[in-house]
């Protein structure tokens, strides 16, 4: 994505805005936001009871999270169909993850 010109980058962002509008109109869209580049990332780990704060993204991150969409999909197949419409899927990849509910106990691992 770094190689895109300003115009191309803007065009892609306009496509994303339109994509979100489409997903909202179809009732699938719950939440979502783009993220700034990983240059701005700060990583927090807690080890031995104390915080370890480092600049930058996780060292092991090869592909970086550029943003997220929270969509309502009937099942994995619908999620795949919706994910194909997300414009940056043409450049990087879209990972689909089911949302896990946080509970007091009996949480799914």
């Amino acid at each position: 994505m770094q190689q895109l010109s300003q115009d191309e980058w803007d065009a892609l962002n306009r496509e994303c805005i339109a994509c979100v509008a489409g997903l909202q109109a179809s009732g699938h869209f719950l939440e979502g936001a783009p993220l700034l580049s990983t240059d701005t990332a700060t990583t927090v780990r807690v080890r031995d009871g104390g915080p370890m704060i480092t600049d930058g993204p996780f060292a092991e991150t090869k592909e970086q999270l550029a943003g997220f969409y929270m969509l309502e999909a009937r099942d994995c197949n619908e999620a795949i169909r919706l994910a194909q419409k997300i414009p940056p899927a043409r450049y990087g990849s879209v990972e689909i993850r089911p949302v896990r509910e946080l509970m007091e106990e009996g949480n799914r691992k």
Partner: peptide, 14 residues
């Protein structure tokens, strides 16, 4: 089970 992969024959598009 967890990812919700449905038990279906894909529609014409897929």
């Amino acid at each position: 089970r967890d990812a919700g992969i449905p038990y279906e024959v894909p529609g014409p598009a897929d």
